[in-house]
Write a protein that binds this DNA or RNA. Structure first.
Lengths: 190, 190
DNA sequence: GCATCCACCTAATACCTTTAGGCAAATGCC
DNA sequence: GGCATTTGCCTAAAGGTATTAGGTGGATGC
């Protein structure tokens, strides 16, 4: 038998590609086995189960996304940084819809705590150093930015904006303008 | 045999309850049949297939959500309306997580066009009458609000905010303050 | 009281998931 | 280089979900 040298890493990468092709929730252990021209049961020496596979793909996506974000933020500040970070999420989702969906996969809390998810929060916080916010408003702003990035990208990819008139690129830049303005004039607590 | 009088409507309602209990993507034709104490194949006279079931649940959720939104918006304007609408989404997601997930189900474009989804956009637009925005900024603002509502609720439900310090209720009110401020001082086009 | 129809059933096919146990290629040791 | 062990992939099997085809009996209408 031709040994294929399966490893969790190779399976995870192939799973991520599969996700981009057919959608994250269509990722199946069977299809993965088919791609490696191997019997399904063989994968279970490398993967605990189907859920484990999804978790690994999710972690991979979070890593990749965090790496891109770190790259984009390097040497930028203020609105420049805001735009760069926002575009990282949007572009990643467009290039890798399956991986992006994977990044939304709900991880077990203890797994999430060690994941690249924490880097994302840290980077958003770093971005806010270019604005004049102190705690707890900074945390509120981190959450707002996360919500807008994630919400916008999901809705855009889900076709939520597709019917209506102004193209989404224009909205995207205007939304970033608006967020920048908001962060510069963050309203004081009542 | 005790006839159960299945109908698409009853199945859809039961499916929605099932979604709230076990999660939207765990909703299965088999489980639904079990709940009605009926054989699986029997459901296929009332439902085209599994995808059809999900679509119906999604449409139900969108309707319910739109009804609640219309109710909340009645007689309100400005920030009052903004808060009310935002809370409709958040509360619905908390009360009915499965249905809320269903509302995000990607519908076929022609189905989406006839769905309550369009009412949602209209209501957000109506809300903006309390602020001083003209086209195309109004559309941009509609999309921004949709993104924030959806993004915030998803992240909060997905546990994205769970580890960190200030509680999410405080952030939520501050985010709504911030959105209100932003809509009152929408930045002009460059 | 009979014919009809509809609602639910049985049967069968086809995937996907997961576990248990087998065999042979690769690896390590002398 | 030959032998033992490990390990990587395989066969087999059980159980769950989706979906289609065709049957039967209880409810309905005349």
């Amino acid at each position: 038998m031709a040994r294929v040298r399966l490893t969790p890493e190779r399976l995870t990468r192939a799973g991520a590609e599969l996700a981009d092709e057919v959608g994250f929730d269509q990722v199946t252990v069977s299809e993965l086995a088919r791609r490696f021209d191997v019997k399904v049961a063989s994968l279970y020496s490398h993967l605990k189960n189907s859920h484990d596979l999804r978790t690994r793909i999710a972690l991979l996506a979070l890593e990749e996304l965090a790496d891109r974000a770190a790259d984009a933020l390097a040497g930028r500040a203020g609105k420049d940084a805001l735009t760069a970070l926002a575009n990282v999420y949007r572009d990643y989702a467009r290039e890798h819809p399956g991986r992006y969906a994977a990044a939304q996969f709900r991880l077990a809390p203890e797994v999430a705590a060690c994941s690249a998810g924490v880097r994302h929060a840290q980077m958003t916080r770093a971005l806010l150093r270019g604005y004049d916010l102190t705690e707890p408003d900074q945390t509120h702003a981190v959450r707002l930015l996360g919500s807008v990035f994630h919400g916008y990208v999901s809705l855009e990819m889900g076709g939520g904006f597709s019917h209506s008139a102004p193209d989404t690129q224009e909205t995207w830049t205007r939304v970033l303008d608006a967020l920048d303005a908001l962060l510069r004039n963050w309203p004081p607590s009542p």
